[in-house]
Amino acid sequence: MHLVELSRAEHSGLKIDPDLAEASAARQHLIPVVASEFRKAAIQYPIVFAKHPETGRFGAYVLNGLEPEENLFWTGMKMDVAYVPLNIRRRPFFVGMADSPSGANDNVLCIDIDSSCITASGQKSIVDADGSDSPYLKEILSIVRRLVDGQKHTDSFINTALSLDLLCPIVLDIVLEDGKPLHVEGLYSIDEDRFRALDKESIEILWNEGLMDLIYSVIISTGQIFNLVRLRNERASLNRAWRGNDN
């Protein structure tokens, strides 16, 4: 990866294929999401919380696999999902605060000039022939704006949840169909029992801050883990079949 600040003059000639952005998530089991995406994400993925390895701070993610570097939605061509997170759709563009722990260069739009999305066969450019922003760049800017705004909301949701002791570690002890045990660690979710035991004042805080929907989205999304297990079992049996044919 090689990030440089986007320059409309310098990068006007770049040809970009946005469809290839999804390929960059092929080996990503956690994709960061912002609060405004929770509702849509919940129909496809488990929404989980995990600590940033460099800061220990919590972020919100959608879970794509049951092990690091596993993305069970990646088909080899695309993400077979009903909703693609903004953090995939913005690629190959980056904003400092979304991925860097320091957030020092936030609100600077960057482009990864090593990205495989930049290709001669790409149909998109950042500027039109007349030098104005292309509809594609306008769409990217809109996504990036939603991510930047959404990050603040997401952080405040996480802080409120933490202050009410609502986050708890998820312990997943899964035995796959082929008998392989899988122990998933480092993921956190909403503690339903604690949530249901909250006093009136705490519920009011959540209600007034508009966080109720988010909590229910997270709780409901947890069931998507069963879908991941199903996909994982399917993949395993396909692999076995493949090896069987190969022999």
């Binding site: 800061t55 220990g56 701070r57 933490l162 002791d165």
Partner: peptide
Amino acid sequence: NKIKEFGLQKI
């Protein structure tokens, strides 16, 4: 230094 900057989580 990181603990002082970012804090440790309770969970």
